[in-house]
Design a protein around this nucleic acid. Structure first.
Length: 585
RNA sequence: CGGGGCUUAGCUCAGCUUGGUAGAGUGUCCGGUUUGGGACCGGAAGGCCAGAGGUUCGAAUCCUCUAGCCCCGACCA
């Protein structure tokens, strides 16, 4: 192992935060000289950033290999045809970077690899004897995100570990899925980042069930719904228990003049009634698979909001948006006074379950300046479909235990999916069974964002001007700082000791620069190595050295003759904190 | 894709309202003094004021367009 000298390394630390950073990890990664921005959402890794990234990759690789996964490397370049075949070119849309080769063939820079891996499987595996099999790769992905943000939190070019399992049936998939889930817990523990595992929406990837591993932080962009009882779900997916309105005797409808009163808040004040006594209607346009526009009215009790992810999943469309003013006019909808009845017949009506048995609600009359009192579902109107469309928010009641739910922000670090036969059917892959029949393999896919782990760990162990990396992914194990002028007589002795521990595999960064001690400490705070070894005249004169554990700021003094023993012991102590401590939830 | 903001020295910013070809701090380089928390003294280099067009005798400054970057929202494995 070589000893690394700061005077020779590119670690461009800065005193001031970059003007264009809002999240603490972004600011610290720039200030500490870990990364450098090239384009919006595209970063260069500088030496210490790259060292951390490589350590995260090594941990992931070890855990994948321990599970018997096969590491492969698929190309970033893919033919667009595959994506047309799986009908995902539309679902992903503008997020795909596409290019033409010299023969004008359409290629894309892969945002993910389900299509390619399915084709690979078809070409290379054909018997049940070869199953189960899991492929994985650590590779650069490209996604032209509409809005990159937060430094490494949302980028357009990033490194991902993606794995794909192929099993003989659903039962076998369960086993692969659970094994992968356990491996993920180990990976996050070893990287020193706390995660919660939550129920998730599977989005454009498709499939029958998925979970995410989330690091909770206000810098995150996913909304996570959590309960003390252990219930945890992505806001997109979360369900809640809704208190039903009391059943009432259904009264006759009545038209009330409500001039200039158009939203639930105002209506609630006007009628002096709680919001759950109103009927809310929201109008959308969905694009179906052939890109035809479908008008939708979604209705829900007035105290609740529509979860648009649930709505678009129910409709099986990837493109859902609110109706614009022009479309509202075209369908003769009277904004502010609309109800989900007596509308243009093209409009598909979907009602939330909260409306079932909610009697005598106040809803729009579809006539300007009037609302209707005592509107009753079934008696007065029916929807084409009734389903759960409600958005869960902080304060909603838990579906399991009825306690109040919390909503928190988080960063999605990993996502695991049960894909089922989705892609194996599209690409028509079959494997031979023990008997003469053939089966369609069942797939799972599993992703981890490596850059996001790095950003999350930076968020986790940070203050305004300092970072502390877990020893397992720290760019070096120890940071050696000389204070004051070198004492010629002792220098040789120290260098010999450093060389010895370095030969044992300990990674050492020495601040050999001719800088003042303040500058050296400030830089060390940003570089974040958890063990700091200090040599100074006043200690050397007593044949002592000082070692600081920056995870708790504890400083201790030891005899130089014990140097190797002490350093190794402290490193091992720190390592033990992170090794294989699987979080259960 | 909608809304907002920004773009002047390597970095963080001032100057723009009221037009007269550019400033600070920090960093860098040189010399010296310092050395347990970004220290001090002296000297130096460093800018096509994002780009294009316009108004003007004259534009960093006023007007128009374009681009880039950031934030909020929409979208999103």
């Amino acid at each position: 192992m070589t000893i690394n000298f700061m005077s020779k390394m590119l670690i461009p630390t800065r005193k001031e935060s970059p003007s264009d950073s809002d999240t603490i990890s972004h600011s610290l990664l720039i200030k500490g000289g870990y990364i450098s921005q090239l384009l919006s959402g595209v970063y260069t890794y500088l030496p210490i950033g790259l060292r951390i990234k490589n350590k995260i990759i090594n941990i992931i690789r070890e855990e994948m290999n321990n599970m018997g996964c096969n590491e492969i490397l698929m190309p970033a370049l893919q033919p667009l045809e595959y994506w047309e075949k799986s009908k995902r070119s539309k679902a992903f849309g503008d997020i795909i970077f596409s290019i033409l080769d010299r023969k004008k063939r359409k290629l894309i820079l892969g945002p993910t690899h389900e299509e390619v891996v399915t084709k690979l499987f078809a070409d290379t595996v054909n018997s049940y004897k070869q199953m189960p099999i899991i492929f994985y790769q650590i590779q650069t992905k490209f996604r032209d995100e509409a809005r990159p943000r937060g430094g490494l939190i949302r980028v357009r070019e990033f490194t991902m570990k993606d794995a794909y399992s192929f099993d003989i049936d659903d039962q076998a998939l369960e086993i692969s899925y659970e094994k992968m889930s356990t491996a993920y817990q180990k990976i996050f523990s070893r990287c020193g980042v706390p995660v919660v595992k939550i129920e998730a929406d599977s989005g454009a990837i498709g499939g029958k069930g998925s979970q995410e591993f989330i690091y909770l932080t206000t810098s995150g962009e996913d909304n996570v719904i959590l309960c003390d009882c252990g219930y945890a779900a992505n806001e997109e997916k979360a369900t809640m228990s809704i208190e039903k309105n009391k059943e009432e005797v259904q009264l006759d409808k009545e038209k009330i003049n409500t001039k200039n009163i158009t939203d639930i808040d105002q209506l609630s004040i006007f009628f002096k009634l709680p919001k759950n006594k109103f009927l809310k209607s929201v109008f959308y346009i969905a694009h179906d698979k052939e890109d035809k526009l479908i008008p939708i009215v979604a209705s829900i009790r007035g105290d609740l909001e529509i979860n648009e992810t649930k709505l678009s999943n129910f409709l099986k469309v990837s493109n859902l948006r609110k109706m614009n003013e022009k479309e509202i006019k075209n369908y003769n909808i009277i904004a502010g006074y609309a109800g989900p009845y007596q509308l243009n017949k093209d409009i598909i009506s979907i009602a939330d379950e909260s409306l079932v048995n909610a009697d005598n609600l106040i809803g729009g009359s579809n006539e300007l300046n009037y609302h209707l009192k005592n509107v009753n579902f079934i008696r007065d109107w029916e929807a084409n479909f009734t389903t759960d469309l409600a958005l869960v928010t902080s304060g909603s009641s838990c579906i399991n235990c009825n306690k109040k739910l919390n909503s928190k922000k988080g960063i999605e670090l990993g996502h695991i999916f049960k894909l089922g036969k989705l892609y194996s059917e599209i690409f028509n892959i079959k494997i031979t069974n023990p008997d003469p029949s053939k089966s369609i393999p069942v797939m799972g896919c599993y992703g981890i964002g490596i850059d996001r782990i790095l950003a999350s760990v930076a968020e986790n162990g940070s203050s305004n001007n300092s970072l502390t990396w877990p020893i397992t992914i720290s760019p070096f194990h120890v940071h050696v700082i000389n204070i004051g002028k070198k004492e010629e007589s002792k220098t040789m002795e120290i260098e010999n000791s450093l060389k010895k521990i370095s030969d044992l595999g300990i990674e050492i960064l020495i601040d050999d620069r001719d800088e003042t001690v303040g500058k050296k400490f400030a830089d060390a705070d940003l570089i974040g190595i958890p063990l700091r070894i200090l040599f100074s005249k006043r200690n050397l004169d007593k044949n002592k050295f000082e070692i600081v554990d920056t995870t708790n700021q504890e400083s201790s003094f030891f005899d130089i003759k014990d140097f190797e023993k002490i350093v190794i012991r402290l490193i091992n102590n720190l390592k033990n904190k992170y090794e294989v401590e699987v979080i259960k939830n």
